[in-house]
């Protein structure tokens, strides 16, 4: 290809390109591996049992502080071989437009999460305890500065 030529220009043997084009399966992709997987409660959003890829790049969760005075908020995840690279990748992936002044990266497997199935019992305690909210106390309605 010439340095300033247009690589998009169809090759002279366009017909050949078409013929060589791999057949894309018309069905769905990889049906065999889409069965629901068992869920590990030690990872945050990721439900796969193995979060480290073939190349040894593990999964990291990224938290970004958007400006001083605010807390770090979960922005997403990414793959990286170590913490230093995870930080750099996070900067390139989640702060291309000044979205942050500080980044945390955490190995996904280091995060302990509550079990979604135990939602009911785990968060039961505040239920029925309306008196913990200011709105419970109605007799003072209309009183100023209270």
């Amino acid at each position: 290809m010439s340095p300033h030529g247009n690589p998009e220009e169809p090759a002279s043997s366009a017909a050949e390109i078409k013929r060589e084009a791999p057949k894309v399966s018309t069905g769905s992709t990889n049906d065999s591996v889409i069965e629901p997987v068992e869920i590990k409660s030690s990872t945050t959003e990721v439900s796969t049992s193995s979060t480290t890829g073939r190349s040894g790049w593990g999964l990291w969760e990224v938290f970004v502080r958007s400006s001083r005075g605010l807390s770090h908020v979960h922005a997403g995840s990414l793959h990286a071989p170590d913490a230093a690279m995870a930080l750099r990748n996070a900067r390139d992936l989640y702060t291309r437009r000044n979205e942050g002044v500080s980044i945390w990266v955490v190995p996904a497997e280091a995060i302990a999460a509550s079990d979604p199935d135990a939602k009911g019992s785990f968060f039961e305690s505040p239920q029925g305890k309306d008196y913990r909210h200011a709105t419970y106390y109605t007799k003072s309605e209309g009183v100023k500065h209270l």
Partner: peptide
């Protein structure tokens, strides 16, 4: 890709499918 990974596919599986011409 990260969103898809939360459903149980690994990044490697998806990359392989694309490169093998199996993915749309």
């Amino acid at each position: 890709y990260s969103a898809a990974e939360t459903l149980g596919h690994t990044r490697d599986e998806m990359m392989d499918a694309l490169i093998a011409g199996k993915a749309r």
